[in-house]
């Protein structure tokens, strides 16, 4: 069930990323066109591109947590690599700690901090200067991507604890 949900979320995010990335390219190409061919440069392309990058960056990053592509240093892990097995409880514990930190980051800064920010901007009715879109809508990508990160981290935690049980059964 979880895996099906996960694949569903993967596909949705991939589609959104494709749309955002190609949208940003088209937006900037449109900026060039309006300037040279129509002789009337557009005032809004700059803002669209900037907001697009915030959305692309945050949504892509949350999708990246699902695929575990984020860069890490991990000296302890490298040290343990040649000494104990991958499924040793110590290694599993380490993975859970790391996952816990990701969860805390997503829950506190992205979800709580991000939602506060969204509600503050909406309460005070803030809109962007050129497009006039509510800034709350721009910032809403923070809690959304936080929730996605929490979902992926939860799935990974279930997976890891499964390995923990398997190890306990053998030992």
């Amino acid at each position: 069930m979880c895996q099906a949900l996960r694949r569903r979320l993967d596909r949705i995010l991939e589609s959104i990323l494709v749309i955002l990335m190609s949208g940003m390219v088209l937006n900037v190409l449109w900026q060039i066109t309006t300037r040279y061919l129509l002789g009337d440069p557009s005032s809004v392309t700059e803002e669209i591109a900037r907001f697009g990058l915030i959305w692309l960056g945050m949504l892509g990053a949350s999708y990246g947590f699902g695929r575990k592509v984020h860069l890490s240093v991990g000296l302890v892990d490298e040290f343990l690599d040649s000494r104990i097995a991958k499924d040793h409880p110590l290694r599993i514990g380490l993975e859970l700690v790391s996952l816990g930190c990701v969860g805390i980051f997503a829950a506190l800064i992205l979800v709580v901090g991000g939602s506060n920010l969204v509600s503050l901007s909406s309460e005070f009715n803030q809109v962007s200067a050129a497009l006039g879109v509510p800034l709350g809508a721009v910032y809403s990508v923070l809690p959304i991507s936080g929730a996605i990160v929490l979902f992926y981290s939860g799935l990974q935690a279930i997976e890891i604890s499964g390995r923990w049980r398997a190890w306990g059964g053998e030992g």
């Binding site: 009337d40 440069p41 005032s43 050129a130």
Partner: peptide, 25 residues
């Protein structure tokens, strides 16, 4: 046909547009 930087304000943008420029905050 000129892109003019404006402050991040809707009326500053409207003013530059009224004068014929293209406003970019």
């Amino acid at each position: 046909g000129l892109k003019i930087r404006t402050q991040e304000s809707p009326s500053a943008i409207r003013m530059v547009r009224a004068l014929g420029g293209s406003a970019t905050p």
